[in-house]
């Protein structure tokens, strides 16, 4: 089972609540995704806590765990303040920590991220840091006390899938006891399957489902992609090899087949 700071979840898909055509479609898509955890942006969506009760009650109806995030924060101080506001608003020690270096590329500020994580952990938060595939940063986050690390597949909203497979594979190997989530950059269910096949514990996404022509169907597709990837990982994937390896015995094959 997926474990986040001592809480277990059956679904390995975490999903965002932004950008859907309507709250009703958001609800239906989240249900179809099977996700147990939804992320909510305090700044972009919750308008710093001024969001209408009607919208919140639609999220509450889903009976899911809320993971607030600090999307849009550009400095350590901003991220820490936003996290504190989120804790008050949602009554949870969980925070998906984003410190953005540059508004244009949405690249995480890795130095600021480690700093902010240390401050928040000291303050009793359970931090889900959003970072790149850089192993040294991931290790620093773990040393700081993060039990979850969330490297990107590719830049936010790029829909490119996993662009640095080797680095993500290395991170999985070096941090076997940390809950690892691939966050951001996933565009297709096959990308999600790929992450799970690499042994990642879960994936987090939003745009790929919310902005699909049919978000509910796409949510179903991602649920299946995640299940396929995880099942394949547990089943044990075969190693790639350089040359063909026949699956049926060649001995006894008539020579005109063997040479063709």
């Amino acid at each position: 089972m997926l474990n986040f700071y001592g809480k277990t979840f059956s679904s390995r898909l975490l999903i965002g609540t932004a950008l859907y055509p309507s709250p009703a479609i958001m609800q239906e898509a989240i249900r179809a995704s099977g996700a147990n955890i939804v992320t909510v942006s305090l700044r972009r969506e919750a308008a710093g806590g001024k969001t209408g009760d009607a919208f919140w009650s639609l999220i509450r109806e889903l009976d899911v765990t809320v993971l607030p995030n600090t999307a849009g924060c550009r400095s350590v101080r901003e991220a820490v303040t936003t996290a504190q506001l989120a804790r008050e608003l949602f009554g949870t020690p969980w925070i998906k920590l984003e410190v953005i270096a540059d508004n244009d590329t949405l690249q995480p500020d890795l130095v600021g991220l480690v700093e902010a994580a240390a401050i928040l952990i000291k303050d009793g938060f359970e931090v889900f840091p959003y970072c790149t595939e850089d192993l040294s940063v991931a290790m620093r986050l773990v040393e700081t006390g993060c039990k979850v690390v969330m490297p990107w597949a590719a830049p936010i909203g790029s829909a490119k899938g996993i662009t640095n497979r080797d680095a993500l594979k290395l991170m999985r190997e070096r941090l076997p006891d940390v809950t690892l989530v691939v966050d951001a950059g996933l565009g297709a269910p096959s990308h999600a399957a790929h992450a799970l096949e690499l042994g990642y514990d879960a994936v987090l996404l939003n745009t790929a489902v919310a902005k699909a022509a049919d978000p509910v169907a796409m949510a179903t597709a991602f649920r299946l992609g995640v299940e396929a990837g995880r099942t394949a990982f547990e089943a044990g994937l075969m190693e790639a090899r350089d040359f063909a390896s026949p699956s049926t015995p060649v001995i006894g094959t008539p020579f005109w087949h063997a040479v063709s």
Binding site: A46, K50, T51
Partner: peptide, 9 residues
């Protein structure tokens, strides 16, 4: 914006 306050941010 899913908010019910007034004014322009």
């Amino acid at each position: 914006i899913e908010a019910e306050d007034t004014g322009v941010s």
